[in-house]
């Protein structure tokens, strides 16, 4: 499994990650980021891409 952690003190809810990994990241009705904390290994490339495009570099991806 891959563990996903978003530093919500850094996150500015730009939603760039949503485009890279919509299964994990979403903007809710108030334009705030919501995400699931675990994902299968085969999503690693998408999740790294999501971490890469975060302007605030708030996303940490670790392989559990």
């Amino acid at each position: 499994m891959i563990k996903i952690d978003v530093d919500m003190n850094k996150c500015q809810h730009y939603g760039q990650c949503v485009f890279e990994a919509p299964e994990v990241f979403q903007l809710n009705a108030d334009d705030k980021l919501e995400y699931v904390a675990e994902a299968p290994d085969e999503m690693l490339a998408d999740l790294e891409a999501a971490a890469d495009v975060c302007p605030m570099q708030a996303i940490t991806i670790t392989r559990a």
């Binding site: 939603g15 903007l27 334009d31």
Partner: peptide, 11 residues
């Protein structure tokens, strides 16, 4: 300005 979901939908 704000309205991020709408802006995102343009991609």
């Amino acid at each position: 300005i704000g309205m991020r979901s709408l802006v995102q939908s343009y991609r």
